[in-house]
Design a protein around this nucleic acid. Structure first.
Length: 461
RNA sequence: GAGGGUGUAGCUCAGUAGGUUAGAGCGACAGUUUGUGGCACUGUAGGUCGUGGGUUCGAGACCCAUCAUUCUCCCCA
């Protein structure tokens, strides 16, 4: 056999039947919860105008956007212009004559673009969910792909913290249903801004968040070094050290943070937001284990720079994996597209990582497999014609079945049923044909019985 | 963008200081068994050892390049 020379682009995958079924199980779970909470579906194109995406994800993000080469570059009339323009591409610029479209990088920005375009028609607050693939030109590694699905739920046109409460509950409900043990971390960008304010001014916000975001990876000493490198003096570093040292229960953390930044306006507001959400998680509202899963994490920063209020991040317990969900509040996302003052808040699920976690922890239920229920054996021309008629009757009664494609040894037909995990075999040979009966065999139990063909449907209803 | 690991049969991998004809398990196919599977036994097919150079009397093994893949950092879902 010639060795296949075809391959898949880096970081992409094919999904076999079993994997698709398991993935659909996750998709359906998430979709049902979104619907349950009053969110409506939206789909946007795989590609957007490049300028819609550029500059929205920070410098790093821009580099990871997959750009689409324009068609028609081979037109001889344009060659000279194209060559000149391509020189600029080599300098790292994006030139419309070379590339003007790109694959979507996330679902939030296309959503903001949609809201800006349709603002007049939307009933506010507008709650939408979106389940579609996104593409990033990242280097693949564990839990990281170049094509992966996001499941987003966002609310725009409302500043109410009730939205945050709802979204936190969606996280809890989905992972509860999937049986994944998670920790939902919560923080507020306002608190980080307050910290920056008392540590040298708001222009230091980015420096500070970048540094403290690394805490659990590089440790406190390295963080302090990095802060000093980024131009903070000793008092300021000490303040941040105190901030990072905050620990204990949610209540203890709140109290400690109040002492440190409660005086500032931003700090006060940020802490109130967190308290508000936590207070909603009263026994009446919370799910069985919810309160132990929603924890304050003052080191949580999140990279996407459009967040302005509460931020969320979800991590799976008991497994080495990056975050499997994240989100937060943004004050003015559509302002980028010419419609200012539309506040919003949203969350995202990373299905591919959730899949990896569930696979690693063996959390998929057996029932995810849903193939055909019956295999009709093919034991000859006349026999298979009778089988075919019965098969169509079963199908008409919504019972999935197939007829083996050729008359061959039973041994082979049994093996086919095994491989496809078909639970029942129906055998019609010359004897059954004569008697108007058929043999129903339960393959797992290795039991069989003979019934009249006219009674067959009853056996499966 | 930076740095590691790995490429040998359809799959998972062995292949010991370079040495004659490259192996195992699983899978596939056939048979033992022309209408009762999963087990067992027997047999068969399937490899230019990722690709291209080099060193050597001799390379799957060593060196260089290249491609693919995987992991870590950065960043993120």
């Amino acid at each position: 056999m010639a060795k296949a020379t075809v391959s898949l682009p880096q970081g992409t995958r094919d999904f076999s039947a079993e994997v698709v079924r398991k993935r659909n199980y996750i998709f359906n779970t998430i979709r049902n919860v979104f619907e349950l909470y009053g969110f409506a579906p939206l789909e946007t194109p795989a590609m957007e105008n490049l300028e819609t995406l550029m500059g929205k994800y920070g410098e790093e993000g821009d580099k990871l956007i997959f750009k689409i080469l324009n068609n028609g570059l081979d037109n001889p009339a344009k060659h000279e212009q194209i060559r000149t323009d391509f020189e600029k591409v080599l300098e790292g610029k994006n030139i419309k004559t070379i590339t003007e479209r790109a694959l979507r990088y996330d679902l939030t920005i296309p959503f903001a673009r949609y809201v800006a375009m349709n603002y007049g028609q939307l009933t506010l607050p507008f709650k939408r969910y979106q389940i579609q693939p996104v593409w990033r030109a990242d280097r693949p590694q564990k839990g990281r792909y170049r094509e992966f699905y996001q499941c987003d739920a966002d609310v725009v046109g409302s500043t109410s913290l009730l939205n945050e409460v709802e979204l936190a509950n969606i996280y809890a409900t989905v992972f509860e249903k999937l049986g994944v043990d998670v920790e939902i971390r919560i923080n507020s960008r306002k608190i980080l801004a307050a910290l920056a304010e008392i540590c040298g001014g708001s222009d230091k916000l980015t420096d500070i968040t970048i540094a403290i975001d690394k805490l659990d990876k590089i440790g406190i000493e390295k963080v302090k070094e990095e802060l000093a490198q980024r131009g903070l003096d000793e008092t300021q570093v000490t303040t941040i050290e105190k901030y990072l040292a905050i620990s204990g229960s949610n209540e203890e953390k709140l109290a400690a943070a109040k002492a440190l930044i409660g005086e500032t306006e931003l700090g006060k507001a940020g802490l109130e937001e967190i308290e508000y959400v936590l207070n909603y998680i009263t026994p009446d509202f919370r799910l069985s284990t919810f309160d132990s899963r929603l924890t304050i994490d003052f080191t949580l920063a999140r990279g996407l720079n459009y967040y302005t209020g509460l931020i969320f991040e979800v991590k799976a317990n008991g497994v080495q994996m990056g975050s499997i969900g994240g989100g937060g509040r943004y004050d003015d996302l559509t302002g980028l597209f010419g419609v200012p003052n539309v506040p919003g808040v949203g969350i995202s699920f990373g299905v591919d990582r959730i899949y990896d976690v569930m696979e690693e922890l063996k959390l998929f239920p057996e029932t995810v497999h849903t193939g055909v229920k019956v295999l009709f054996f093919n034991l000859g021309d006349q026999e298979s014609k009778t089988a075919f008629g019965l098969m169509q009757q079963l199908r008409a009664n919504n019972i999935g079945c197939e007829l083996f494609h050729e008359a061959t040894k039973m041994d082979k037909q049994f093996k086919y049923a095994d491989k496809k995990q078909i639970p029942f075999a129906i055998i019609i040979g010359s004897k059954e044909l004569e008697e108007g009966t058929c043999v129903i065999k339960n393959l797992a139990a290795s039991e069989q019985k003979t019934v009249l063909q006219s009674e067959l449907i009853k056996e499966f209803s």
